[in-house]
Simulated assay, not measured.
Amino acid sequence: MTAASFAIIIPARYASTRYPGKPLVSLVGAHGEARSLIRRTWDCARSIEGAVGVWVATDDKRIAREVESFGGQVIMTSPNCANGTERCAEAIAQLGSVAEIVVNLQGDAPLSPPDIVSHLVRRLAEDGGAVMATPAVRTSRGVYEHLVRDQAEGRVGGTSVVIDGRGRALYFSKRVLPYLPPKAAEAEVPPVHLHLGLYAYRLEALKTYAAAPPCELERLEGLEQLRFLDLGLPVSVVTLDPLDWDVVELNNPEDRPIIERVLRERGIA
């Protein structure tokens, strides 16, 4: 089977409700060097083999200047884009059909392993009925406790996904799903899957998505991927075993020291 070509788009916006200016937040790595979140995401994207190109899609000049300062490529998109998927759709409309698959590498998950992208591209080749593929990792004890603690304190620590027997998404939520009885909740590897902020789309799926209005569940949860499910478009989920480190997303200022600790522990500069 011939590998499909893919391009990487990193959607980035300044006006995050929970963490304004998040792409420009500095994270200190293992050797004491501070790099912005968008720089770390760009470095991750550039390390992925096989991509025909990498672009940051933004509507903010401050982010564009930061990206240009380290030699990155920028596509300016409309401030009216409601989410990263719409921003990717607008970016690829400007770029044209540069690849068969578009990978959305969201910038708030700097601890995600870069080799996930090849798994997503391969899954779309294997699951011909799916229009989009996205990864999820089985939660470790530490990640599960982080999610539950954030939920109890009124913060969103991450997104969980419920998966059917065919490996396709049933639902995504900012709540910790599914409900776990005490015995399951106390397991060393609780049966909860943390969704990671990466997506691989077929080009036609992006066009269909961008042409449709936001659905009610998408608006309530604040999760863009629910529009695919509302439209009846199959989403394939690549499931991963717990990693050797906690995959914590930068959703809140409280997440910053946790991520910096993992960067130090993994020796990431």
Rank of each mutant, 00 (worst) to 15 (best):
T2M: 08
T2G: 10
A4Q: 14
A4Y: 04
S5K: 01
F6N: 06
A7R: 04
I9V: 14
A12T: 04
R13I: 06
Y14T: 06
A15C: 09
P20L: 03
K22I: 07
S26K: 14
S26Y: 06
G29A: 02
G29N: 04
A30F: 04
A30I: 04
A34C: 03
A34G: 08
R35A: 07
S36R: 13
R40M: 15
T41M: 06
A45G: 05
A45L: 12
S47C: 07
I48V: 15
V54Y: 03
W55Q: 11
R62W: 05
V67I: 12
E68Q: 15
I75F: 00
N80H: 15
C81F: 02
A82D: 13
G84L: 01
E86N: 09
I92R: 11
I92W: 01
Q94W: 02
G96T: 01
A99G: 05
A99C: 03
I101V: 14
G107I: 02
L111G: 02
S112Q: 12
D115Y: 08
V117W: 05
H119W: 05
L120S: 03
E126T: 09
D127G: 08
G128Q: 11
G129M: 07
M132K: 04
R138E: 11
Q151R: 12
Q151K: 07
A152V: 02
E153C: 04
G154Y: 00
R155M: 07
V156E: 07
G157T: 00
G158Q: 02
D164W: 06
R168C: 13
R168T: 12
A169H: 01
S173A: 13
S173Y: 03
K174S: 08
P178W: 10
P181Y: 08
K183D: 15
A184H: 12
A185W: 01
A185R: 04
A187I: 06
P190H: 04
V192M: 08
H195I: 01
L198T: 06
Y199A: 15
Y199L: 11
E204N: 14
K207M: 12
Y209F: 15
A210D: 15
A211D: 14
P213V: 04
P214Y: 10
E216Q: 12
E216T: 12
E216R: 13
L217I: 08
R219I: 13
L223Y: 01
L226D: 09
R227D: 00
L231Y: 07
L231R: 09
G232Q: 04
G232L: 06
L233S: 10
P234G: 05
V238N: 06
D241M: 09
D244A: 13
D244K: 10
D244F: 03
V248M: 07
N251C: 09
D255M: 03
I259D: 12
R261W: 02
L263C: 00
